Amino acid sequence: MRFASYQREDGVTSWGAVVAGDSGERLIDLQAVAPTLKAAIERGLLPGIRVDNGNTLAFDAVTLLPPITAPDKILCIGVNYANRNSEYKDGSAAPSNPSVFIRFPDSFTGHNQPLIRPHESEQLDYEGEIVVVIGKAGRRIKRENAFEHIAGLSIMNEGTLRDWVRHAKFNVTQGKNFERSGAIGPWMVSADEFTRKQLEDMRLVTRVNGEVRQDDTTASMMFPISFIIEYLTTFCELRPGDVIATGTPNGAGARFDPPIYLKPGDMVEVEVEGVGVLSNGVEDERV
């Protein structure tokens, strides 16, 4: 089942199930069940959840937000696809452990909302990624048990300001956290919609203005999702609603010669097999 978080026309933030109807997709509001999607995950309410068709909203009558609006942690894996590592023309071998960095919740917006290019840089880049949302807390989780801790999957455009990831020698934090430079959505698809085998060979495609820029599957990951969960939980406890971005394939704008960065008016679509399509335009930051 698909679950989305959104702001209604009256300004109230809520969440609900996305269902298909005769006139297109619609939302069934579930705030009566739990105040947020994260709270529902924490309480273990999603498996077998029942929806009331009386609380229906038109899909185009809401503003979609990232599915988890206030995660405790957003952990991001860098350079995780084998061909992505080959883009670094420094002769370095494949890494023995994943690179990890952290993003802030306000660095993301939702589906159909614009990515914001800040005044400080014209090097806003796209990175299509598969997102794992944690459903059950755990520390030192074994790979064979990792799937049991997943609530669902979503999609991320992990927007990056390329010149700002080079402001310090060992630090990408600045370039990864400009406000609304990235996006997550449009919803979370619950884990019961996927098998372990599907997670190991799931296709991701990123398009800019209709042109395919990234196209790969999770089979190319140097560190598969189960390993990522095992690795992260060696040094921190993952809790319900925590978000993990699992890395991006090759084809980001910075890797073209010359680089092709996003500009106002561009449209970026990230499509993940079995999840959906995350779409975002690009706008300059307003004064």
Rank of each mutant, 00 (worst) to 15 (best):
M1W: 06
M1H: 10
A4F: 05
A4C: 11
S5Y: 04
Y6D: 03
R8A: 05
V12A: 14
S14T: 11
A17M: 12
V18D: 04
S23I: 12
S23G: 14
E25K: 08
R26G: 14
R26S: 15
L27I: 11
L27N: 02
A34P: 09
P35W: 13
T36D: 04
T36W: 05
A39W: 08
A39F: 09
I41G: 07
I41Q: 06
E42A: 08
G44S: 05
P47K: 04
G54M: 14
N55A: 15
T56I: 12
T56E: 12
T56V: 14
D60Q: 08
P67D: 06
I74H: 06
I77P: 01
N80S: 05
N80C: 07
R84M: 14
N85W: 11
S86A: 12
S86Y: 07
S92V: 08
A94S: 10
P98D: 02
S99M: 10
I102V: 06
P105R: 01
S107I: 01
F108D: 01
H111F: 00
H111M: 00
N112I: 05
I116D: 04
I116G: 05
E122W: 09
Q123H: 11
L124W: 09
V133I: 15
V133Q: 01
G135E: 06
K136N: 09
G138V: 10
I141F: 13
G152A: 06
G152T: 02
E158L: 00
G159I: 07
R162P: 02
R162Q: 09
H167W: 13
H167F: 12
A168W: 14
F170H: 13
N171P: 07
V172C: 06
G175R: 05
F178A: 02
R180G: 03
R180N: 02
S181D: 00
A183Q: 08
G185H: 03
G185S: 07
P186M: 08
W187G: 03
E193W: 12
R196A: 13
M202Y: 04
V208I: 13
V208P: 00
E211Q: 10
Q214K: 06
Q214S: 10
D215Q: 11
T218M: 07
T218I: 03
F223T: 04
P224A: 04
I225Y: 03
I229T: 02
I229K: 00
T233M: 07
T234E: 15
T234K: 15
F235W: 14
F235N: 15
C236L: 12
I244K: 02
P249S: 03
P249D: 06
G251A: 08
A252F: 05
G253Y: 01
L262D: 02
K263H: 14
P264C: 11
E271P: 01
V272P: 01
V277C: 08
S279V: 09
N280D: 05
V282D: 03
V282F: 03
E283N: 06
D284R: 15
V287R: 13
